Structures are given as C-alpha cells and as structure tokens.
Computed example of a mutant assay.
Amino acid sequence: MQIVTTPDRFNVPDVFVDLTRLVGQRIFLKCEGFNFAGSIKLKAAVEMIDHAERAGTLRPGSTIVESSSGNLGVALSMVAVSRGYHFICVTDARCTLTARQIMRTFGAEVYVVTQPHPVDGLVGARVRRVRQLCADNDDYFWPDQYANTANQAAHYTRTGPEILDAFPDLDLLFVGVGTAGTLMGATRYLREHRPSVRVVAIDVVGSVTFGGPNLPRMIPGLGSALPSKQLDVSYVDDVVMVPEVDTVRACWHLARSGFLFGGSTGTVIAGASRWYEEHPEAAGGTAVAIGPDFGERYLDTVYQTQWFTDLYGAEMMDGDHAAPGSTGSERMSA
C-alpha cells in the first residue's frame, strides 16, 4: 500500500511492457506515465523544483515560468499548485488541447506563441518570451529545462537505477531525445555501472539536436529547434532519426493491441524497430526502451485520421496504416 499526501511524490518505477509479440524484437518498454502528471517529465519537474527550493532561488509566493510543448508544463503545473506556487507555461500551437486544459485546471496560465523566431523556430520564440517575463518580474523563477543539470540528475538518480535493477543483464538502451535530460542522466548512470550497454538515441526528423536541418514538426515532445545544452555525444553509440509518419504508425500499431501510447513513446518504438532492421545481428539481446508518455493527450491529433491526412496526405494511409478508430463506430440508443 502507498499513501501519499501530495501528488508529486507518487511515481510507479517498475512497469515494463514486453514488446516482443508486437514489434518482433525482445524490447522491454519502461512505462513512465504511471504518476499523477502522466509522463516522465514529473521526475525532472520535481528534481528542478526541489533543487531550487534547497538553493533558495525559489521562494514562497514565487511564480514558476517555463517553456514547454506539453508534458513538462503539465508536470510543473501540478507540482506548483501542490506547493503553493503560481505557474505560467509558454507553449505553442503544437501543444495538445488536452494538455492545455489540464494545466489550466491546475490554475496555470498558458501563453501560446504563434510566431516562430526566424532562426530558432517556435521553441526559440517561447524561450525569448520566458526570458522577457522573468526580466519584467522579480518574483518569477525559470527552471530552464534546457540547461538545468537537475533535469538529468533526476534520471541519473532514478531512471538509470530503475532500469538496471530490473534488467542487470541489459545490452541495449533506446531513449528519445528532447532536452537530452533523460538521455544524459540515465546513460551517465549506465556508463558507470554497466559500461557495455549500447545506447541508441532516438530523435525526430526536423530536429537540430544531432546536426540535422530545422524542419517543421507537428508532434510535441521529442526533438528540438535549438542545439541541446546538455547533450554529450560521447555517451551515444548510435542515433536514429524518425519521420513523424512512422511515429504515428507505431502509435496506431500498438493501439490495435490495446496499448495507447503518446507521440514520444511512438517515436522511440519506431526508432528501435528501425535500428533492429539495420542491426539484425543484435537480435536476442536484452533491450529496454524508455516510454515517456501515454496517448490520451494525443486523441485529437495522433489518433485522428483527419489530422493525419491533412498533414501527411491520404496517400500515406493504406489498409495497413489506417487509424485505429477509422473502422470503429458509435451507436446511440433512445
């Protein structure tokens, strides 16, 4: 039995899904959404706020302000309201309506940036808005997930040990990259305690993190329009770049077996599957993929046929790649 008094102190660390039957490879998906914020971002949110409170940079009555595409904003809004802070999330139109509504339900303000920065895109515009808000208000605190080492510390002290405790014979780790906090924290721990693990970073086509061109991306979560301030590529063995179409298809494929995962998780699974196609000699080892989120917040985007066809074209959808709900029906009775 677990009894909690605040929602930010609850997180289930040891749920893994065996994906062998679903993707044809022995991959164990670490499900990070079993907490009251619904994603892995709760770990970073708690660690950054705890660190700021200990350092005295976050004081009673302060306002927390952060740039987020959704999941961290939800996590910070929950942590803020449970500890008596006000929270402002600066996001953009890619943030799902559900995530925005959750934040507002927790009492947060949500600012939606509509004009991208000419070089740094929407993320750059969001960061500039955060900086301006902090410059104009002395009692505003910016955790800065992009540069804050407490972000990766959460995964060095928790995610990495959780994985190795469950799979001490681990051979492969697949992890998605946004700010690179999860990647760096978990990988630093594994390099110290099981250096033989092969680390595969999963990024999104259109992200600049590993040197690619900055292109439009519609699914919030992984990828970035700004170079990572936390990434050390020496910790990474391989990189897989995933087109968003493959992210959606992975989500749909898993939904047909009853697993409703979010866009970030779909990207990681799609990337792991592609990596195995290019490295068949690695089959049979013990692999863990980190699944950051669940799919409820993506019901009006990733899981909508019209959203998909509007963005990627109807020709990208065929009998094998139809949306899970495209053949479903709804009945009403008197």
Score class of each variant (00 low, 15 high):
P7H: 01
D8G: 02
N11I: 10
V15M: 12
V17A: 14
L22V: 09
Q25G: 01
L29R: 02
C31P: 00
F34C: 11
I40H: 09
K41E: 15
A45S: 12
V46Q: 06
R54E: 12
A55M: 13
L58W: 02
P60C: 05
T63N: 06
V65K: 07
A75Y: 02
F87D: 06
R94V: 08
C95E: 06
T96M: 05
T105F: 09
E109P: 00
G124H: 01
A135F: 09
N137S: 13
D144T: 03
N151Y: 07
N151D: 13
A153M: 15
H155C: 08
T159Q: 01
G160C: 08
E162S: 10
D165N: 12
D165E: 14
A166G: 01
D169K: 09
L173P: 06
L173H: 06
V175L: 09
G178K: 00
G181M: 01
M184S: 02
A186P: 05
R188Q: 09
R194I: 03
R198D: 03
V199A: 08
I202N: 03
I202T: 06
S207N: 05
S207Q: 02
V208R: 05
G212F: 07
S228Q: 01
V240N: 03
M241I: 06
V248L: 12
L254I: 11
S264D: 09
V268D: 01
G295P: 03
Y298P: 00
L311W: 14
D318S: 10
G319V: 01
S326Y: 00
S329Q: 15
S329L: 15
